[in-house]
Design a protein around this nucleic acid. Structure first.
Lengths: 229, 229
DNA sequence: GTTGAACATTGTTATAAATCAACTTTTTAC
DNA sequence: GTAAAAAGTTGATTTATAACAATGTTCAAC
C-alpha cells in the first residue's frame, strides 16, 4: 500500500461528508488531516481482527468486503464502489474489524483518523445522520444475505448474485474483476459448482459468458430462479 | 399486547439511557412520553417489514430476535434480556425493520417515539455513544453468526448455541424458554436433527437434558466440538 | 378426566452440494 | 518467449443434512 504525500482534501476527486464537515467547522488540526492512499489490486485495506484506527472512505476503484471464515474460506458480503465508507460497521465500538476489505483493482482510499471523526461526529449532526443512514442500509443487506445463504439453493444464490453484479455495474453486460472462486464466495458455494452453474445458465441461454465478461440475456428468468430459491 | 396507561419513567424498574437523557435535557414534551407495554409469551414486539416508529427498550423478561426467511423458516440471531435496545439496528435509516422480535415469556417493553429519540440523539452525545456501542456489538455478533451458519456442521452449531445459552443464563445448568424447534432455529437446523443431536450429546455425557432443563456436563469438550466445526 | 393441539422423538430415505481428481487455458514473471 | 503459477473447467464420488413418516409425550382447555 502506497500512501501519497499528504494529499490535501481540496485536490481530492471525490469529496466526502467528512470533508464538508471539516470545512464548515473550520477545524485547525491540520496535523491529522486525511491521508490519501493508492492501492493495487489485492491490497488489503483493512483486516478482520485488527484494531480500528481510521475511518475509511473509498475514493476510486472497487473493493470486496468479506468475512474470513473457517479453513481460509471467505464469504464476500458486498462489493464497494465510490463513494463508500468502508470502516462503517465497526465505527465506534467495536475496537476490532469484524470483516476484511481488499481492493479488486487499482483504488484510492482515504484514511481519516478516528479521533477526528469522533470529534466531528459529535459536533456535526448531518454527518452523524449520513453515516447512520449508510449503517442501517448495510445491516438490512446483511440480513437478506443471511437468509439467502441459508435458505436458497446454489442455483438461486448464483442467480441472485448475477443480478446483484448487473445492478452494481448498471448494465446487463459487464466485466467482473472477480475470479470464479470469488463469485463463488459471494454466494458461499464452491468454485467448481460456480463454474458448473455459469456453464449451465449459458447453455440455457439465460446468460452469456466469455471469460470475465458476463451478459444477462434473460433477466426475468434469472429473477424467477433467484426468487424460487 | 397490553399497553399500561402512560406509566411514567420515574416508576420504571429499569432506567435506560434515554431516561437519563430526558432528565438532563429537561424536556417539556410530556405528550410523547415513553409508553410502557406488558407482553405475554409469543407476543410480537416488532415485525420484519413494518415501519420503524419507536425505539424499543426491553425492561423485563426476554425475547428472541430473528429474521423471517423463505417458506416460513426463521433464523434466530440472538436472545435479548434487559437491559437491551431492541430496535437498534434499524434506528435511523432504514425505515423498515429488517428482523422480527417476539417475547419468549411475560415481558415489559418501553416504546419511545422515534422523533423524540432523534431529537435527543442529536442533542446528547453520551446517548449517541452508548447507542452506537450496542450497534457495533450486534454487528460483530452477526458476522460470527454468518460464519457459523455457513461453515460449521450442525454438530458444531448446536454445541456453539448450547454454550451461548449457558453464558446467557450465567450457569451450566439452565432452563430454556425455547422449544426444540426454536433451538434449531438458532443454529438454522431442522427440528428433527436438533433433537437427535441433543440426544447424542446426552448419550455422550456432554450434556444432560430433562425437557427444557439443560445441564452442560463437559464444557471443554463442547467448546472443542464447537471450534472444530 | 377426556380431548385436541402443540411439542418431542426415532428411523428411513432422498438429495444438494462439497470434495476429489485430472486436465486445459490464461496470466504473470523473469 | 518460455516457464511457472494462477485461474478455469468437467466428471465421478461421497456425505451431510433436510425431508418424510410414524409415533410418543406433555400440556392446556372444557
Amino acid at each position: 500500500m502506497k500512501f501519497s504525500k499528504k494529499q490535501n482534501c481540496i485536490n481530492c476527486v471525490l469529496k466526502c461528508d467528512i470533508y464538508s464537515t471539516l470545512l464548515s467547522t473550520e477545524n485547525s488540526e491540520t496535523c491529522n488531516e486525511p491521508v490519501h492512499a493508492h492501492l493495487k489490486k489485492h491490497d488489503v485495506i483493512c483486516r478482520q481482527g485488527t484494531e480500528v484506527t481510521h475511518a475509511l472512505f473509498l475514493v476510486k476503484g472497487s473493493a470486496k468486503l468479506y468475512i474470513e471464515g473457517l479453513n481460509h474460506r471467505n464469504i464476500i458480503l458486498y462489493i464497494l464502489k465510490p463513494p463508500a465508507y468502508i470502516g462503517l460497521l465497526s465505527f465506534f465500538e467495536s475496537p476490532y474489524y469484524s470483516y476484511s476489505v481488499t481492493a479488486l483493482e487499482e483504488s484510492e482510499v482515504c484514511f481519516i483518523e478516528l479521533s477526528l471523526v469522533k470529534k466531528l461526529y459529535i459536533e456535526n449532526h448531518d454527518l452523524l445522520l449520513s453515516l447512520n443512514k449508510a449503517f442501517g442500509k448495510s445491516v438490512a443487506m446483511i440480513m437478506q444475505k443471511i437468509i439467502s445463504l441459508n435458505q436458497k439453493q446454489i442455483r438461486g444464490r448464483i442467480a441472485e448474485n448475477l443480478i446483484y453484479l448487473s445492478e452494481f455495474h448498471h448494465s446487463h453486460k459487464f466485466c467482473v474483476s472477480l475470479t470464479r472462486k470469488e463469485i463463488g464466495e459471494m454466494a458461499a458455494i464452491s468454485e467448481e459448482n460456480t463454474v458448473r452453474l455459469l456453464t449451465e445458465f449459458s447453455k440455457e441461454k439465460i446468460i452469456a459468458t466469455k471469460g470475465r465478461n458476463i451478459e444477462i440475456l434473460d433477466m426475468s428468468l434469472l429473477k424467477k430462479i433467484s426468487e424460487v430459491g
